[in-house]
Structures are given as structure tokens and as C-alpha cells.
Amino acid sequence: MPNTHSDSAVQQVVLQPLPGDFAIWIFIFAELSVFAIFFAAYAITRNTHLELFNVAQTHINKTYGYINTILLLTSSYCVAIANRYIKEGRSTACTRFLAYAMMLGAAFLAVKIAEFNNDFANGITLSSNLFDMFYISLTVFHFMHVIMGMVILSVVTYKSYKGKYNATEHTGIETGSVYWHMVDLVWIILFSLVYILH
């Protein structure tokens, strides 16, 4: 009987390995650092051009940002569910949820393109003012990361469809997932900073 207690205690402190390939974490920290510099530059520049930022910020549509936040969070959730399913050996369900995540990612890109069209029609460009320069640069930079994430998810989904992953070997899915969640993490900071805080 005492052994049962000590066994369960040992099980509770067993730590899991970092999900995915370790190299992707190095890449993610590099990406997060670049975005951190962008965010800091935005916040500090705003402090010295407060009036301009407050006026220019009213020209962007918060609702586009909100819809995209919901789409990206839900896409990330689908990827997390796909990870759970592959660990249970349910590759068909995993592939299905990866496909849902990609569809939501595509919807994010479509909404963002519609938003950019609207912005350009309203005269928002890289050179119109300092806020617009930051807004366009940050969102386009993030947009490119979403495209990169979609490419990675496409490869992972295709390999999952072909049955290349199972309950014991699914590092590829974990690696792709971690990158996709990083894209999501950056967006929630960007959303608060550029669309919400004023």
C-alpha cells in the first residue's frame, strides 16, 4: 500500500519534454524578440506623438481586429485539439482539426486583405503618418507570419492525411503547432496594442 502512494507521487513530478523540435523554440524566441522590439518602438514613439497616434488610431476599424482575434484563437484551439487526438492515435480526427485550423487561418487572411483594401481606400499608407507606418508594418509583418504558418500547417495536414503520424511519432505536428500558437500569441499583443489601447 505505501508503494502505491509513493508511485503516484513520483508520477506527479515527472516532467514532459518540450513539445516539438527544440530548434523551433530557438526560432520562436528569435521571432518573439523581433516583435518585442517592434512593440516597444511603437509604445515609446506613441509617447512622443500622442496627439497624432490618438487621432490616426480612430481611422482603423477595431471590428476587423476583433473578428481576426476570434478566428486566430479558434484556429489555435483546433490545432491544440489536433495534437490531443494524434497523441490518442486518432489520426483521422487529427487531420480533420488541422484542416479546420487551416480554414480559419485562410479566413483570417481574407479578413485582413479586406481590412487592408478598406485602409488603402481611406488613404492609410506607409507614408501617411507615423501611426499608419507602424500599423501597416506590424500587421503586414504578422500577415507574412500567418502565411508562413499556413504553409507549415499545409505540410503537416498533408502528412497527417497520409498517415505519417501516430500516437508515438508526431513531432512534426507538435513543431508546426508551436509555431502557429506563436503567431496567435503575437497577434493578441498586437491587437491590444494597435487596436484597443489608446
Binding site: L15, Y77, S177, V178, L185
Partner: peptide, 22 residues
């Protein structure tokens, strides 16, 4: 808004990225 953003980031890192048990 900043507190909400940090909490959201924490949720993504912990539950989506799978950092919970590492």
C-alpha cells in the same frame, strides 16, 4: 487591457503551446 493581454498570453502558452507539464 494590459492585464487581460498578459492573462491571454499565459493561457496560450500554458494550454495551447503545451508548456503546462514541462
Amino acid at each position: 487591457v494590459l492585464c487581460i493581454t498578459v492573462i491571454k498570453g499565459h493561457l496560450i502558452i500554458r494550454y495551447f503551446m503545451g508548456i503546462r507539464g514541462v
